[in-house]
Amino acid sequence: MITANQLRAARALLDIDQRELAELAELSVPTIQRMEASDGVIRGNVDSLMKLVSALDHAGIELINPGVTSTTGGRGVRLREHAAKPKAARPSSSRTLERIR
């Protein structure tokens, strides 16, 4: 599970905007906006949530959930050591074809 606050904090740690996160997760900007506007735990399409969490993980973000070992407890995010600035996913061939048309 990920909360809207964790998502905003993760973006801040990565120093990326909503558009860049949308590209990394292969989601639309409105989807990212809806997720960040959520109250508490983000709810949504399971596939979209999996893409989001996977993109954050690949970018070096660790989600800290309740019950996970941390010095003060509670939820949070952490940037793994030696995490490089994430690069946007390459467009799929269908997206490339749509742009060409």
Rank of each mutant, 00 (worst) to 15 (best):
Q18F: 02
L63Y: 00
D47G: 15
M35V: 02
R11Y: 11
K87N: 12
G73A: 11
Q6N: 06
T96D: 01
R75Q: 13
G60T: 13
R78A: 13
G40F: 00
S93F: 09
T31F: 10
L97M: 02
D17Q: 02
E36H: 03
H58P: 05
M50W: 10
S93P: 09
A22S: 03
S94A: 12
V68L: 15
R80L: 12
T31K: 14
R34V: 02
T69M: 14
G44L: 00
E23W: 08
K87L: 12
D57V: 06
L56P: 05
R11A: 04
G74Y: 14
A10E: 10
R80Q: 09
S93A: 10
L52K: 12
A4R: 05
N45F: 06
G76C: 07
S48Y: 08
A83C: 09
T71D: 14
E62M: 11
I100S: 05
L97N: 04
K51E: 08
N5C: 11
T72A: 15
I16H: 01
S48D: 10
L14H: 06
E36N: 03
A88S: 08
D17Y: 05
A55D: 06
R99S: 05
E20T: 12
L79R: 15
R75N: 13
S28G: 11
T31S: 14
R34P: 04
A55L: 01
L52S: 07
R11V: 07
P91Y: 06
A25S: 04
E26S: 10
A84E: 14
P66Q: 13
T71M: 15
G40K: 00
P86V: 04
E81T: 13
I100W: 13
L21T: 03
R101G: 15
P91T: 07
A22W: 02
L63V: 02
G40L: 00
L27M: 04
L97Q: 04
R78T: 13
A89R: 15
E26K: 11
D39C: 01
L49Y: 06
L52V: 07
E81K: 11
V53H: 02
